[in-house]
Structures are given as C-alpha cells and as structure tokens.
C-alpha cells in the first residue's frame, strides 16, 4: 500500500487536465500572490485517480477560494468549521460506504458515489484546534487523505503563532521583543504524533519536489485507510519572504533539513525520500539553516548580534530532529 505503480508524467498530466478543462481550483481564487497552498492543491488534483471530494477546515484556503457568490472549486467541496474537518470527513466517508453498499443512487444518472476524500487543513486547524477530531478519525480508521498545508502560523487571522511555528519566529503573538525575541519554544512533532496512530501512510512533501509530492499524494489516494500528508507551504505575508522565492524556499527547507522528506508506513517503517536520502548519504550536502532563515524576515531579529545564539539553537533543534529521523530510518551508524 505504500507503493504505487503510477509514475507521474508532467506532459501527460497537463494534457489530460487541459483536455478536461480541469485544474481542481480555478483561477480567480483570492489566495495571496505567491501562496503555494494553491500549488499544493493543484498537485493533489494532478495525482487524483478518480473524482475527489474536498473537505476544508477553516483557514486561508477555505476563505480565499469560496468568497460568496464565487467558488473556485471544480470538485465537490465542503467547509464546516475550524476544528472538525476530520470529523466531517468521517461522516462523509461512512455515508459514502452506506450509500454505495445500498446501491442507493445507482439508478440515478445525476449522482456519482465513487470518489476519494481529501481534507485540506492549515496548521492551526491541524496541530492545534483540530487535533482531537483528527486523532479520533485516525483511530477509527476512516479512509481519507488529510493534507496539512503547513505555513507555520495562523495566517488567516493575521499571523499568530501556532503549535507549528518554529523556534524564534516572529509572529504577531510572538513579537521579536527586546526581552522575548520571537517564539520561545519549538514545533510540536505532529508527524510523530500522527504516525503513532499506526495509520497506513504518513508522508511529508515539498511542492518544489513535485514528482515526489505527486507520487506520495497518489499513494495516499490508493492507501486503504487514513492517510496524513504534511505539505510545506510558504506564506509570504506571514514569513516576509519574496513571493517569487516561495518554491525556491520549499527546496531550501529540504536542503537544510528544516523540512526533511520522508514516509512512515504503518506508523513504524520510516523511509527517507530521495531528496533527503541524498543528504543522508552525503552529509556534506546538508546546508546550514542560516541559508534558509535569511530568506524570511520573520527570522530577521535572529541575525542581530545579541540574538545570534538563536540561529545556533535553531540549528541544534534541526540537527536533533534530523538525527532522530536518520535513526528511525535505520540510517545511523
């Protein structure tokens, strides 16, 4: 189940989507210019094997794509609240199972019941307020793919810290003050927490590594049970990075091991994905975090002489997680 026969072919995918007039989300949505949440959604749609139904937690993506009376979604889409996307998806999934079993709409030419369910949630809706509903759904074993677009703060409300905000980062609720410069603690290890549910498939993706991402999304669709995918999602409004560098930063995050790419199968089998595996095999390729940090003004205060210790600390935290990952993947010693 953690394997797929599908090999993404960019030309083929583009051709098919073009012929269908299908992009998943259409232009005219109002995500900020350079917001790769849009890219992530499109990559999920590129990897779809059959019709997709989307459940969206409250957040930027939800708001920006469905400003009444407009909708940018070409697929069935539903949003209920901030903290319950996984619970809503649980209900959709069981309803689908029941209606298919009953052949309820089989004679109705207007209704199609064969679809995959994907949930999109931001880090606020996933790490924090939605964690309970997500944990419950994972435990119950519903078949849907939960895609976290992780932009490391509550961006929809205007850049407040979340359980995903990295150490040291400026947000409006962790300002870079004279006494307390940025966020004093690090990130919640959410992927570990989700993997601990022993669900069939957990993975991390970065939109720069689109081939890796598409394959993982397809594996997610094909898996027989709950799937969780954490996608690296820059936010140029909240991170103060140059919008055009959004995809390049998605690459740097992997190259610095700030955001390693890996899979966890059944909660126990940890596998590094090719871009991160290449670093594991050639540790000299691992770039210092400074290169990543300097692309975003949310970390600017860390470069002040009195705060330089924060960069060192940041590096230590990244190294610690990286070593832990190598150990889990059986790549140590």
């Amino acid at each position: 189940m953690a394997e797929t026969k599908w090999v993404p072919n960019i030309r083929q995918i583009a051709k098919e989507m073009h012929e269908r007039g299908f992009t998943g989300i259409t232009p005219g949505h109002r995500l900020c210019a350079g917001c790769v949440a849009g890219t992530i959604v499109r990559q999920v749609m590129m990897a779809a094997r059959k019709p997709v139904v989307v459940i969206n937690a409250t957040g930027c993506l939800e708001v920006a794509t469905t400003i009444f009376p407009y909708t940018a979604w070409q697929v069935p889409w539903a949003h209920n609240a901030f903290e319950n996307a996984a619970a809503v998806a649980s209900g959709v999934e069981r309803a689908q199972a029941k209606l298919i079993r009953d052949k309820r709409f089989e004679g109705d030419p207007d209704i199609e019941m064969d679809y995959d369910i994907v949930v999109f949630g931001g880090d606020g809706g996933t790490y924090d307020i939605g964690l309970q509903a997500l944990s419950g759904a994972m435990e119950r074993g519903h078949k849907f793919m939960y895609v976290l677009y992780d932009n490391e703060a509550y961006m929809n409300t205007g850049i407040q810290r979340s359980g995903s905000t990295p150490f040291g980062a400026w947000t409006t609720t962790t300002p870079a003050g004279k006494v307390i410069p940025g966020k004093p603690v690090g990130k919640k290890p959410l992927v570990d927490i989700i993997a601990a549910h022993r669900i069939p498939y957990v993975a991390t993706v970065s939109p720069y590594y689109w081939n890796d991402a598409l394959v993982k999304f397809r594996k997610g669709f094909e898996a027989d049970g709950p799937v969780f995918i954490r996608a690296f999602s820059t936010c140029n409004r909240g991170w103060y990075n140059a919008p055009e560098e959004s995809i390049a930063i998605s690459r740097l995050a992997v190259e610095t091991c700030v955001f390693p790419l890996y899979e966890v199968v059944n909660g126990v089998e940890w596998r590094l994905s090719p871009p991160s595996l290449a670093i594991a095999k050639n540790p000299e390729k691992k770039k210092p975090v400074e290169e990543y940090l300097k692309t975003q003004r949310r970390f600017r205060h860390m470069f002040e002489p009195e705060n330089r210790w924060m960069i060192k600390r940041f590096q230590e935290m990244v190294d610690y997680e990286w070593e832990l990952l190598l150990e889990r993947a059986g790549l140590k010693g």
């Binding site: 030309r11 259409t26 499109r42 995809i247």
Partner: peptide, 11 residues
C-alpha cells in the same frame, strides 16, 4: 508551480 492555475499548458 503556478499557484493560480494561470499558466495554460496542454502538455
């Protein structure tokens, strides 16, 4: 990579 489905391409 276009986040806005604004590059049109038929492959």
């Amino acid at each position: 990579f276009c986040p806005d489905s604004s590059i049109i391409w038929d492959g």
